[in-house]
Design a protein around this nucleic acid. Structure first.
Length: 512
RNA sequence: GCCCCGUUCGUCUAGCGGUCUAGGACACCGCUCUUUCAAGGCGGCGGCGCGGGUUCAAAUCCCGCACGGGGUACCA
């Protein structure tokens, strides 16, 4: 029975790379009829951010990849709790078990002593600190101190950490489902801290203990964990536990390829890196999310799944259900992938066109209410949506590009006026003004007829006359079919806008 | 520095020794359709990092090199 977990730490909003990790875990679990667990890794109290956990859950739910079990659900599999802070009492016991078995030890070094070690190593040409099989020999720990002193210090309440005791010359080999066999020599691995002096475990201890206790069968996580996996494998051996299978996902890189896409990139790169909008609880700063930027979750998912995974054929459109059927770890790539926002937009555009028109009515209703715009009935709104749909990339474009349906133009596209404002086009508009006044049946067909009449009368090609009319009615140089727009606006409003425009141009331009 | 991982069009990728004069998608550029802009249709541009092997045959296997990424915290 497959059981996987997504294990983010609540240090802020979930970013797009984390979301993809969650997605792959979800797809893998569902493909195998397994269980997808959400585990909150909040062992670093100094980095805890209020609201981050709720954000993570909401983001997963919005994407349709809600975990089967987590801090937000009933404990259906009886493996909780699912916040590591609530499991604190568990870890110490396991760390001590390792000490007793000779795989770990207590270390009492003060920050000053650690700093002294750093300086010593630096003098020897080492760039970073290594508390390892060599340096531990001359530090203050249960390997160098007499047993009585160790007991005394612990009894006295001296702060201490528990470190793993890496053997000096062994080879650790493990199989990565994506990369194959990976071999690392233990001399390369430091004596990492397992239990911090505040009694909390580090990631290394907590993830091994929890993955074992929760019966995790496959650990699917980002490539940044690959270098510490040998340590984890060593710990499973030390505990005498069977290790889960590992799969390390290629990283999502910045569009320029310079490093992995990170939370810190915020929306500084010209596109959101978070699924949902995030308001920083401290600074109050608001960072954009895909949802608020007008993306559909199915588009985000489709885009994201292809960042590192690919089927054997040329298909590219995938529903979540299809993905569940087809997803496999074997088809995950090895190389880091660059984030490509224009492709995300393309998927979004595609999925917007797939959605029924009525799905976007609430969006328009909300905008109408907020802006106190002219209201329409549902049928008309659907027609408006239909007209806009083909040219929209994000749902927010319905509002931005379609505002003229609800409110008269605040400004006119100057370029079009410059180009098209001529004797004949002016006459064309004046002709329409007169003709429309007396037009009885205000519908697409009749409007179309008046336009044709006008063209004929003034010897104009459509391309010469219609752009100006469009600016008059919508303020914009481009948009959906004009007769349709006019029909929706109605005779009164159309005439009003036409007159308004003629008055405007005559006020700013020299008479022709 | 050291360790680990990676390397096919600008980007995401197909390719798992001959079917590759390397296929698809996004982007870009034309043409077409069209009252405009999109969308759609058609077409174009563009790639196996380098050097050695192995083999009758290598984008595909092996070894170097180069380049890129990750890790190297009482962060995850």
């Amino acid at each position: 029975m497959v059981r996987v977990r997504f294990a983010p730490s609540p240090t802020g909003p979930l970013h797009i790379g984390g979301l993809r990790t969650a997605l792959y875990n979800y797809l893998f679990a569902k493909h195998h009829g397994g269980t997808f667990i959400l585990r909150i890794e909040d062992t670093d109290r100094t980095r805890y951010v209020e609201g981050a956990e709720a954000y993570i859950i909401e983001a997963l739910q919005w994407c349709g990849i809600d975990p089967d079990v987590g801090p937000h659900t009933k404990d259906k599999i009886n493996a909780g709790p699912y916040r590591q802070s609530e499991r604190k009492h568990l870890y110490k016991k396991y760390a001590e078990q390792l000490v007793e078995a000779g795989f770990a030890y207590y270390a009492f070094d003060t920050p000053e002593e650690i700093e002294a070690l750093r300086q010593r190593l630096k003098a020897q040409g080492s760039k970073t600190i290594h508390y390892n099989y060599m340096s531990r020999e001359y530090m203050k720990n249960s390997l160098t101190l007499p047993a009585s002193e160790v007991q005394e210090r612990i009894a006295r309440g001296d702060p201490y950490v528990i470190r793993i005791k890496m053997p000096p010359k062994e080879t650790i080999r493990f199989y990565d489902e994506i990369r194959g066999w990976i071999t690392v020599h233990t001399s390369q691995i430091d004596d990492k801290i397992l239990l911090k002096s505040d009694g909390m475990p580090t990631y290394h201890l907590a993830n091994v203990v929890d993955d074992h206790l929760m019966g995790i069968t496959h650990v699917i996580r980002g490539e940044e964990w690959l270098p510490s996996t040998p340590l984890h494998v060593f710990m499973y051996q030390a505990f005498g536990w069977e290790a889960p299978r590992f799969a390390h996902l290629p990283l999502i890189l910045r569009p320029d390829g310079k490093g992995k896409l990170s939370k810190r990139d915020g929306d500084q790169m010209g596109f959101p890196v978070f699924p949902l909008q995030w308001k920083d609880p401290k600074s109050g700063e608001i960072i954009k999310g895909y949802r608020e930027e007008g993306f559909l979750p199915e588009a985000l998912i489709n885009f994201l799944v292809l960042l590192g995974w690919h089927p054997s054929d040329n298909r590219e459109i995938f529903s979540l259900d299809t993905l569940i059927k087809e997803f496999s770890i074997e088809r995950i790539g090895k190389a880091g992938v660059r984030f490509n926002y224009s492709k995300a937009l393309w998927f979004n555009q595609y999925y917007i066109r797939q959605r029924p028109n009525k799905d976007f009515i609430p969006l328009l209703r909300k905008a109408i209410k907020e802006n106190q715009w002219r209201d329409y009935d549902d049928n008309t709104l659907e027609t408006i949506i239909q007209l806009l749909k083909e040219r929209v990339k994000r749902t927010t474009d319905f509002i931005e590009e379609g505002a003229f349906f609800f409110t008269s133009p605040k400004e006119y596209d100057e370029k079009t006026i410059q180009k098209q404002w001529k004797q004949e086009t002016q006459a064309f508009l004046q002709f329409l003004e007169q003709t429309w006044e007396t037009l009885e049946q205000w519908d697409v067909e009749n409007i179309q007829n008046t336009l044709q009449q006008g063209l004929k009368q003034w010897g104009l090609k459509p391309g010469k006359a219609f752009p100006l009319l469009r600016v008059a009615i919508t303020g914009k140089g481009a948009g959906p079919s004009l007769p349709n727009i006019l029909a929706i606006l109605g005779k009164e409003e159309s005439l009003k806008r036409l007159k308004q425009f003629l008055a405007y141009v005559q006020s700013v331009k020299q008479p022709l």
